[in-house]
């Protein structure tokens, strides 16, 4: 065993990278659920984002355009969910699952000609002097821009939900859609916007995997991150900063356990392998002892005639 081989600076830096896809997908889903909609199609929207971001950045040579395309791709797929649940009033659970299945299959089709292609690199932000500060520099100031965008999104969602009128209306729709409707708010319209925001975020998260974390395209490459994001939103009690905490915990322990294994620490590997799930759940469950509960209208179908 040689713990000295683990470089804590690199460890923290790579845990932030490992957490970002989860963070992006989860914050999008948080907004969707706050509006009272349960979209289980996160995994499908992520993988569509992963391939559309990958394809566009390879074709144009610009990772930025790729990420924009990923957000649009995820949002377009979420429109299918809108059509099913908000227009046709279909069951949200079934529609979400269908969205995931469709996304996985459709992305495999789209990605046929992109297997083994190397995407253009986004590069890291390098601020003179600041990025060179020992320890703090590599941890905080030497990342790709999307990682900072993820953190900024958390802050923005938190501020909007808490302090703005838009946030208040969104929460009202999620808590009691009949009352919101009676007050004259366009419940369906607001939910559609929330769902598309969620789709765009999930798309970004997927593209982060295919363009930065791995970087390549492989079928099914999101490998369940969307499902973890869904669980994370619940365990984080629908609170943005807890989503950040949960994502960093999960990403962090995932990377840490690999590091411990490589350094030969004498903890049975099975425990290390399951530790990200257990520790994340434990911490968030303890935190949610304050009885914050789900949006009251979560998963319920709204029709103006009710």
């Amino acid at each position: 065993m040689d713990l000295g081989e683990i470089n804590p600076v690199l460890l923290v830096a790579s845990l932030m990278v490992a957490a970002t896809p989860l963070l992006l997908a989860a914050i999008g889903e948080l907004v969707v659920e706050k509006a009272g909609v349960l979209n289980l199609g996160v995994e499908g929207m992520m993988i569509i984002g992963a391939i559309s971001g990958f394809a566009i950045s390879v074709e144009t040579g610009s990772p930025w355009l790729g990420f924009i395309a990923a957000a649009i791709g995820g949002a377009i797929l979420s429109l299918l969910f809108v059509l099913l649940t908000q227009v046709a009033l279909a069951n949200q659970v079934a529609s979400g699952l269908a969205l995931t299945l469709f996304g996985l299959g459709f992305s495999a089709l789209l990605g046929q000609s992109y297997v083994g292609v190397k995407p253009p690199s986004m590069g890291e932000i390098n601020i003179p002097f600041i990025s060179d500060i020992p320890v703090i520099g590599p941890i905080l100031f030497q990342h790709d821009p999307i990682l900072y965008l993820g953190i900024a999104l958390i802050a923005a969602v938190w501020a909007v939900l808490k302090y703005t009128r838009i946030g208040l209306i969104l929460r009202a729709v999620g808590e009691n859609h009949d009352a919101a409707h009676a007050l004259g708010y366009k419940v369906i319209k607001i939910r559609i916007m929330a769902i598309m925001f969620g789709g765009a975020c999930a798309g970004l998260g997927g593209a982060y995997i295919s363009l930065i974390r791995v970087p390549q395209w492989t079928e099914g490459m999101t490998a369940g991150v969307g499902w973890i994001a869904l669980a994370l939103v619940v365990f984080a009690s629908w609170k943005p900063w807890r989503v950040l905490l949960g994502a960093y915990l999960f990403g962090g322990i995932t990377v840490l356990q690999l590091n411990l294994q490589a350094a030969g620490v004498a903890i049975p590997v099975e425990y290390l392998a399951m530790s990200p799930y257990i520790i994340t759940i434990l911490v968030l469950v303890i935190l949610s002892a304050d009885k914050s509960s789900a949006p009251a209208s979560l998963g319920r179908i709204f029709h103006a005639s009710h």
Partner: peptide
């Protein structure tokens, strides 16, 4: 699991 495999390689 491409993401995990990539993480393992990076570590």
């Amino acid at each position: 699991d491409p993401a995990k495999e990539a993480d393992a390689a990076t570590v």
